[in-house]
């Protein structure tokens, strides 16, 4: 297994998760993943060197997702799950979740990037490297986005609170 294959199989799911969370659509996510690894393949083929492949992959994924969203000029349709896939959760919880997902998809792509990376359990340093936000501003940005989401959710559904 060469270095590209190793990187591909090690990082495929991580990249896919971020792409799916960003695009909200499985097919779009797969296309983005393909493009990301194609970029990696080309870079390695042309003798390019990547010191931190993980960070590089996330950065490229995030940029491609943002580019795609900007081109679409509207957010991708929500791939909201059908009810029968979640027997363990109540209808009420599903509704709440759908409201939250709607609010998430109404965020600016750059803000959504932060939330997606945050949900992946990244440290502030990793979020900063992948998103391009200053390290000192990550906490402030997350706090601001959460406040924004809270306001949106209050607006969308008062019963939530």
């Amino acid at each position: 297994m060469n270095s590209f294959d190793k990187l591909y199989y090690e990082n495929y799911h991580k990249v896919y998760r971020v792409a799916l969370k960003m695009s909200g659509n499985a097919q779009n996510a797969m296309d983005i993943v393909q493009e990301v690894f194609l970029s990696l393949f080309d870079k390695l083929e042309n003798g390019g060197e990547i010191i931190y492949p993980g960070t590089w992959l996330y950065k490229v994924t995030v940029n491609k997702c943002c580019d795609g969203l900007r081109k679409q000029m509207r957010f991708a349709t929500l791939d909201v799950a059908a009810g029968n896939e979640f027997h363990e959760v109540t209808i009420e919880k599903q509704e709440t979740r759908q409201i939250i997902e709607k609010a998430l998809f109404e965020l600016h792509p750059r803000e959504r990037v932060i939330m997606v990376l945050y949900s992946e359990g990244f440290s502030y340093k990793e979020i900063s490297e992948a998103s391009g936000v200053k390290f000192q501003s990550v906490g402030k940005t997350i706090s601001r986005i959460l406040e924004k989401l809270e306001k949106k959710l209050k607006g969308l559904n008062n019963d939530l609170y």
Binding site: R97, E101, L104, S119
Partner: peptide, 13 residues
């Protein structure tokens, strides 16, 4: 919010 965002990924395939 973290749970909701993670919920978007239902299946890795």
């Amino acid at each position: 919010i973290i749970h909701s965002v993670n919920h978007l990924v239902k299946d890795h395939g």
